[in-house]
Computed example of a mutant assay.
Amino acid sequence: MQLVVGRIGRAHGIKGEVTVEVRTDEPELRLGPGAVLATDPAGAGPLTIETGRVHSGRLLLRFAGVADRTAAEALRNTLLIADVDPDETPDDPEEFYDHQLMDLDVVTVDGAAVGRIAEIAHLPSQDLFIVERPDGGEVMIPFVNEIVVEIDLEGQRAVVDPPRGLLDADQAEVASSRDESGTGEDGAARDGDAEDES
């Protein structure tokens, strides 16, 4: 099974290093020195990682045969693809590989369908599920225990308990205006609950 684990950004310096947008939660494993990665477009690779380091919060890689800035710039926007055993799972039962989570159905704790996980974004602060809704829209759901309460791989679903407004911006605006008007004790109670959770 092949998974996109990164995207090459701009060249860094004059010796062939490039910045990389990480798209895996295990960069030390997938993007470490010696790793051989396929590419999209395929003509750019395969690429073998020679060195890697973190500089100002960004991952910098140098590939074998890429010795100068011109060669590095030619790789810009190339996707890096790793071969992953589909049966491979993390040691920690509370952790998951991206390929295990992709295409899971997302439902709320009361059984309402939200959509399907189409992408997982790895941000510096947290991971996000990019969920494709039945109407074609998208919603971003933080992958944190307070919101994603269960990952059921056997049932192929992720169960979420979203805070007010996460899934429906209109609902948040209505609730907010209700709170400002001083009516709606429900809203105040939910606000208290939210504060306790954070």
Rank of each mutant, 00 (worst) to 15 (best):
residue 165 G to H: 02
residue 141 I to D: 00
residue 163 P to D: 05
residue 162 P to W: 10
residue 174 V to W: 06
residue 145 N to T: 13
residue 159 V to D: 03
residue 164 R to V: 11
residue 148 V to E: 02
residue 140 M to E: 15
residue 157 R to I: 01
residue 149 V to Q: 11
residue 145 N to P: 11
residue 171 Q to A: 15
residue 135 D to T: 05
residue 150 E to Y: 06
residue 175 A to G: 13
residue 152 D to N: 14
residue 150 E to S: 12
residue 158 A to C: 09
residue 137 G to P: 04
residue 163 P to K: 02
residue 175 A to F: 10
residue 154 E to W: 08
residue 154 E to C: 00
residue 141 I to R: 02
residue 137 G to T: 15
residue 175 A to Y: 06
residue 142 P to I: 14
residue 165 G to R: 02
residue 163 P to N: 03
residue 161 D to I: 02
residue 178 R to M: 15
residue 156 Q to T: 06
residue 156 Q to N: 10
residue 175 A to D: 14
residue 158 A to G: 03
residue 175 A to C: 04
residue 139 V to N: 09
residue 168 D to R: 01
residue 174 V to K: 04
residue 175 A to V: 04
residue 165 G to I: 01
residue 160 V to D: 00
residue 137 G to L: 09
residue 170 D to R: 11
residue 167 L to F: 01
residue 154 E to N: 12
residue 167 L to G: 00
residue 169 A to M: 09
residue 135 D to F: 07
residue 168 D to E: 09
residue 139 V to L: 11
residue 151 I to P: 00
residue 177 S to M: 13
residue 165 G to S: 03
residue 169 A to Q: 13
residue 159 V to Y: 07
residue 141 I to Y: 04
residue 173 E to G: 01
residue 154 E to K: 12
residue 154 E to T: 15
residue 145 N to G: 10
residue 149 V to C: 09
residue 169 A to R: 15
residue 161 D to F: 08
residue 158 A to W: 07
residue 151 I to W: 08
residue 166 L to D: 02
residue 171 Q to H: 12
residue 159 V to A: 05
residue 158 A to F: 08
residue 164 R to E: 08
residue 135 D to K: 12
residue 176 S to C: 07
residue 135 D to G: 03
residue 157 R to L: 06
residue 169 A to F: 13
residue 148 V to A: 14
residue 138 E to I: 06
residue 138 E to Y: 14
residue 166 L to G: 00
residue 140 M to F: 14
